[in-house]
């Protein structure tokens, strides 16, 4: 069956390719990714970088420009409008310079999410960030933060710093439509060099408060 040599295999392959139409779960991924990484990546970066003595944004950025890796614990409380009480999760976060971020949730379910370069991996799903321009904007802005590139950060957010050295908060207000559609604001707060909380407020008024533990540098 000369023609069939390839075609037999193809028949099966064709089935596979049709199956690729069914990725409903994947449709939801966009949202997760947007909401989460805007908050977590920034928050972690802040945690690991916040050493400056004087709290103006320029100095903060300057401090952030020094590359480091580290890990910490987190507790996240989600306030969802249809729930009577907030729901809680906790686990470890890890950042490896220059571009790996890992979030290992231990409670209530064991789950690992990992960003490496331009790929996000969750539950064996790989999401190329380039397919999500708004997400890429986030990540790139965070990479901007990592390298102390304030200009890049300000392409996506309007930054404002409040409070004093012992009780400060940096608010990021989305300046791009894609992001602003979902997120109202992200607030990173802390005292001195420590980041304590990251609060994400969504446009539907649901919010998520992440509290970070002490940072250890491996």
């Amino acid at each position: 069956m000369p023609a069939g040599d390839m075609s037999c295999k193809e028949w099966v392959s064709c089935q596979f390719s049709i199956i690729t139409h069914n990725r409903p779960f994947y449709l939801y991924m966009r949202f997760i990714v947007r909401a989460m990484f805007a908050a977590l990546f920034l928050g972690l970066v802040m945690t690991l970088r916040a050493h400056a003595a004087d709290w103006d944004i320029t100095q903060l950025m300057h401090a952030l420009a020094q590359e480091k890796s580290g890990q910490t614990t987190f507790v996240e409380l989600k306030y969802i409008s249809f729930l009577n009480q907030p729901i809680k999760s906790s686990g470890d976060m890890r950042f490896v310079s220059p571009d790996v971020l890992e979030m290992h949730t231990l409670q209530p379910d064991d789950q690992t999410i990992r960003v490496r370069g331009d790929l996000l991996i969750m539950d064996h799903h790989t999401v190329p960030l380039e397919d999500h321009p708004e997400l890429l904007a986030f990540i790139d802005s965070i990479r901007g933060t990592l390298t102390g590139n304030r200009a890049l950060l300000e392409r996506f957010f309007t930054l404002s710093l409040k409070g004093d050295k012992n009780d400060w908060s940096l608010m990021l207000a989305p300046s791009k439509k894609d992001v602003a559609k979902l997120i109202q604001s992200i607030t990173v707060s802390g005292s001195r060099e420590r980041v304590r909380h990251i609060t994400i407020v969504k446009t539907n008024h649901d919010r998520s408060v992440i509290t970070l533990g002490d940072t250890s540098t491996p």
């Binding site: 409903p24 779960f25 939801y28 991924m29 949202f31 997760i32 990714v33 909401a35 989460m36 977590l40 996240e76 989600k78 969802i80 249809f82 729901i87 809680k88 999760s89 979030m103 949730t105 209530p108 379910d109 789950q111 999410i113 969750m122 649901d206």
Partner: peptide
């Protein structure tokens, strides 16, 4: 609810009232 609480759980947020048993 546990799925909802876990990071990334926002994915099922919209589904929850119509599909609390996670069938989808």
């Amino acid at each position: 609810l546990n799925v909802l609480a876990t990071p990334g759980g926002e994915a099922v947020e919209a589904l929850f009232p119509g599909d609390p048993t996670g069938t989808m």
